[in-house]
């Protein structure tokens, strides 16, 4: 017992009382009519859900609307959530489907770019060495990463929607393959294929830009 921080008792009025609960426990409380459980779910997921939709559709205001609608839909149908799946998967699935529906309605599904595959020569190797040589990020690497940030965002925006979903969930939300498969409703093998093809496109997009710069 000693040395362990005291756990907040259930129902405690302390600010972080619900913060210690698992997502599924929060859902149970929400279904009992506990408003603070809804707010805690919002607190946990508003950023990732908004982020996913924003990157999927690329319009901040519409992303805000779609993300709010996703939460309203999820909350008003909370009794249809099957607890044998991760709650986050269920919520992301609603959000992603909402974004895809929006893209379909707006016929916005973007065209993917095709960087020409090319061999790496020693000069380009030299150019990229500063970023790529050391396994740990140095300040220079971080700076370069920031510069690359804008380019990678644009490259992600040009991926086809299912590749984009996979990349966002894997690399921004750090979701494991299994969860991405649950969210997208495809086998894990398909997720791997999506990610492989998406990353190949992204790599080519970034290489192309480096050649110009």
């Amino acid at each position: 017992m000693t040395g362990q921080p005291p756990a907040a008792p259930p129902g405690s009025t302390a600010g972080g009382a619900l913060g210690a609960l698992e997502d599924k426990e929060l859902v149970t409380r929400a279904l009992e009519g506990d408003e603070s459980a809804y707010r805690e779910i919002l607190e946990r997921f508003r950023r990732p859900v908004f982020s996913l939709i924003y990157r999927m559709i690329g319009d901040r205001e519409q992303a805000e609307d779609l993300a709010q609608e996703s939460f309203v839909k999820a909350f008003n149908n909370l009794d249809s959530y099957n607890p044998s799946y991760r709650f986050s998967s269920w919520l992301f699935k609603i959000a992603n489907n909402h974004a895809i529906d929006h893209l379909r309605r707006a016929r916005l599904s973007t065209v993917s770019i095709h960087g020409s595959p090319h061999a790496v020569d020693s000069e380009r190797e030299e150019e990229t060495r500063i970023v790529l040589e050391a396994p740990d990020e140095s300040p220079e690497q971080e700076m370069l990463a920031v510069q690359l940030g804008g380019e990678i965002e644009r490259a992600i925006a040009r991926l086809r929607p299912d590749y984009r979903t996979a990349v966002i969930l894997r690399h921004i939300e750090n979701r494991p393959y299994e969860e991405i498969a649950e969210i997208m409703g495809v086998p894990i093998g398909t997720v791997k294929t999506f990610l492989h093809r998406a990353r190949a496109e992204l790599r080519d997009a970034l290489s192309h830009l480096k050649e110009e710069g």
Binding site: P48, F50, Q141, A145, V146, L148, G149, E153
Partner: peptide
Amino acid sequence: AEWRGLMLALASLRGTEPSESF
């Protein structure tokens, strides 16, 4: 090199906060 460059760029991405009134 190219793969590492890509992973570095991907790792630099951050989530975006929605509005205050969300």
